[in-house]
Measured scan of single mutants.
Amino acid sequence: MDVFMKGLSKAKEGVVAAAEKTKQGVAEAAGKTKEGVLYVGSKTKEGVVHGVATVAEKTKEQVTNVGGAVVTGVTAVAQKTVEGAGSIAAATGFVKKDQLGKNEEGAPQEGILEDMPVDPDNEAYEMPSEEGYQDYEPEA
Score class of each variant (00 low, 15 high):
Glu104Gln: 10
Glu139Arg: 09
Ser9Phe: 15
Lys21Leu: 13
Lys23Ser: 04
Val15Gln: 00
Gly47Trp: 08
Ala107Met: 07
Asn65Glu: 10
Thr64Cys: 09
Glu139Val: 11
Gly7Cys: 15
Gly7Ser: 15
Gly41Arg: 12
Gly51Phe: 11
Ala17Gly: 04
Ala107Trp: 10
Gly132Ile: 09
Tyr136Pro: 08
Thr22Arg: 01
Lys34Trp: 15
Ala89His: 04
Val82Asn: 03
Glu46Pro: 02
Gly73Val: 14
Gly7Gln: 09
Ala85Met: 13
Met5Gly: 01
Lys45Val: 15
Gly25Arg: 14
Lys96Pro: 04
Asp121Tyr: 13
Val70Tyr: 05
Val63Asp: 01
Glu110Ile: 05
Leu8Phe: 01
Asp119Tyr: 03
Glu110Phe: 12
Lys60Gln: 06
Tyr39Asp: 01
Val71Asn: 03
Lys6Asn: 07
Gly68Gln: 04
Lys60Trp: 09
Thr33Gly: 03
Pro117Cys: 10
Lys6Phe: 04
Ala90His: 10
Val70Ala: 03
Ala56Cys: 14
Gln79Ser: 09
Glu139Cys: 02
Leu8Cys: 01
Lys23Met: 15
Met127Val: 12
Lys32Thr: 02
Glu131Ile: 12
Pro117Asp: 08
Gly86Lys: 11
Val82Glu: 02
Val26Met: 15
Asp2Gly: 00
Tyr39Val: 05
Glu123Gly: 08
Pro128His: 03
Leu8Lys: 00
Val82Gln: 05
Gln109Arg: 10
Leu38His: 03
Glu20Lys: 03
Asn122Val: 08
Ala89Val: 13
Tyr125Gly: 10
Thr59Ala: 05
Gly93Glu: 04
Ile88Ser: 02
Phe4Val: 01
Thr75Tyr: 12
Gly31Glu: 07
Ala107Thr: 08
Asn122Lys: 14
Lys6Arg: 04
Tyr125Pro: 08
Gly25Cys: 08
Asn122Pro: 08
Glu131Arg: 07
Thr64Lys: 05
Tyr125Phe: 06
Ala56Phe: 09
Met5Leu: 00
Val40Ala: 05
Glu61Asp: 08
Ala89Tyr: 10
Thr44Phe: 15
Ser42Gly: 07
Ile112Glu: 05
Glu83His: 08
Glu105Gly: 09
Thr54His: 13
Ala11His: 00
Glu139Trp: 06
Ala69Thr: 04
Ala11Leu: 14
Ser129Arg: 04
Pro138Gln: 04
Tyr136Ser: 14
Glu114Thr: 03
Lys21Gln: 08
Pro128Cys: 05
Ala30Cys: 07
Val37Cys: 07
Thr33Pro: 00
Gly93Ser: 06
Tyr125Ile: 14
Ala56Gln: 06
Tyr136Met: 10
Asp121Glu: 11
Glu20Gln: 12
Glu114Pro: 09
Glu105Asn: 10
Asp115Ser: 05
Met127Glu: 15
Val3Met: 06
Gly51Met: 15
Ser9Ile: 13
Tyr39Ser: 06
Val26Ile: 15
Gln62Gly: 04
Gly68Cys: 03
Glu114Cys: 14
Ala91Tyr: 12
Lys12Phe: 03
Glu104Met: 14
Ala91Gln: 09
Val48Gln: 00
Glu35Pro: 01
Val49Phe: 09
Val26Asp: 00
Val82Met: 11
Thr92Trp: 15
Val48Glu: 00
Asp121Phe: 12
Glu123Trp: 10
Ser42Arg: 08
Glu131Leu: 05
Glu126Leu: 06
Gly67Cys: 11
Glu130Val: 14
Met1Gln: 00
Val37Tyr: 14
Glu104Pro: 08
Thr92His: 03
Gln99Pro: 03
Thr75Ile: 07
Glu137Trp: 04
Asp119Leu: 10
Glu139Thr: 03
Val118Pro: 12
Phe94His: 05
Ala76Glu: 05
Lys43Phe: 13
Ala11Cys: 15
Gly86Leu: 13
Lys45Pro: 02
Asn103Gln: 07
Thr75His: 14
Val3Lys: 01
Gly36Cys: 10
Pro138Lys: 05
Val70Ser: 01
Gln24Ile: 11
Tyr133Arg: 02
Gly47Lys: 06
Val37His: 00
Gly47Asp: 07
Val55Asn: 00
Pro120Asp: 05
Ser87Val: 13
Ala69Tyr: 07
Lys32Pro: 01
Asp98Gly: 13
Val48Met: 15
Ala27Trp: 10
Asn65Thr: 08
Glu35Thr: 11
Glu123Thr: 08
Gly7Asn: 15
Gly47Met: 07
Phe94Glu: 03
Val71Lys: 07
Ala19Asp: 00
Glu57Val: 08
Val48Trp: 15
Ala107His: 06
Gly36Phe: 04
Gly68Val: 12
Lys10Asn: 03
Tyr125Lys: 11
Lys21Asp: 00
Thr64Tyr: 10
Tyr133Ile: 03
Val118Glu: 13
Ala76Thr: 14
Leu38Cys: 09
Thr81Arg: 02
Gly101Asn: 02
Gln79His: 07
Glu35Met: 13
Ala69Met: 04
Val118Arg: 12
Ile112His: 08
Asp121Asn: 08
His50Trp: 12
Ala90Ile: 06
Ser129Met: 09
Ala11Gln: 00
Val37Lys: 01
Glu123Leu: 10
Glu61Met: 06
Glu130Gly: 13
Gly47Leu: 13
Glu28Ser: 09
Val66Pro: 01
Ala30Gln: 01
His50Tyr: 10
Lys6Ser: 02
Glu130Ala: 06
Val74Thr: 02
Pro138His: 05
Gly67Glu: 02
Val82Ile: 05
Val82Trp: 12
Lys58Tyr: 08
Ile112Gly: 10
Gln79Thr: 06
Gly7His: 04
Val66Asn: 02
Val37Ser: 01
Asp119Asn: 06
Thr92Leu: 12
Gln62Phe: 08
Ala76Leu: 12
Gln62Tyr: 04
Thr54Tyr: 13
Asp2Arg: 01
Val118Met: 08
Lys34Thr: 02
Lys10Ser: 04
Pro120Val: 05
Thr92Gln: 03
Lys34Tyr: 05
Glu105Ser: 08
Val55Ala: 05
Tyr125Ala: 03
Met5Phe: 03
Gly7Glu: 03
Lys43Trp: 14
Ser9Glu: 14
Gly73Thr: 14
Gly73Ile: 07
Tyr39His: 06
Lys102Val: 13
Ala91Met: 14
Ala27Leu: 11
Val82Gly: 03
Lys58Ile: 13
Gln99Leu: 10
Glu35Gln: 05
Ala85His: 03
Lys45Glu: 00
Pro138Ala: 10
Lys6His: 02
Thr72His: 15
Glu123Ser: 11
Gly36Pro: 01
Pro108Leu: 08
Val52Cys: 10
Val55His: 01
Ala78Asn: 01
Gly73Gln: 13
Leu8Ala: 01
Met5Asp: 00
Asn122Leu: 05
Lys12Pro: 00
Gly14Ile: 15
Lys97Pro: 10
Glu83Asn: 08
Glu61Tyr: 02
Gly41Met: 14
Ala85Trp: 14
Glu130Lys: 10
Gly73Trp: 13
Gly51Asp: 01
Asn122Glu: 07
Glu126Phe: 03
Asp98Lys: 06
Ala17Pro: 00
Ser129Tyr: 05
Val26His: 00
Asn103Phe: 10
Pro117Glu: 02
Ala27Phe: 12
Lys21Met: 13
Glu114Phe: 12
Tyr133Asn: 09
Thr22Lys: 00
Lys12Gln: 05
Asn103Ile: 04
Asp119Phe: 03
Ala140Thr: 11
Val40Asn: 00
Glu137Ala: 07
Lys10Leu: 14
Gly67Asp: 01
Ala140Gly: 13
Val74Leu: 15
Lys21Arg: 15
Ala89Asn: 03
Ala78Met: 14
Gly73Lys: 11
Gly106Glu: 09
Gln79Met: 10
Thr92Pro: 03
Glu130Met: 08
Gly36His: 14
Leu38Val: 08
Gly51Cys: 15
Val52Met: 13
Ala27Pro: 00
Glu83Ala: 07
Thr92Tyr: 07
Val48Lys: 01
Glu35His: 08
Gly86Val: 15
Glu61Thr: 05
Lys12Thr: 09
Gly41Asp: 00
Tyr133Phe: 06
Pro108Asp: 08
Ala69Cys: 06
Glu126Tyr: 06
Ala140Trp: 11
Leu38Ile: 04
Ser129Glu: 10
Val74Phe: 10
Gly106Trp: 13
Glu114Leu: 10
Val48Asp: 00
Lys45Cys: 10
Gly84Pro: 02
Ala56Met: 13
Val118Phe: 11
Pro120Cys: 07
Gly25Ile: 11
Ser129Trp: 04
Ala11Glu: 00
Ser87Pro: 04
Asn65His: 04
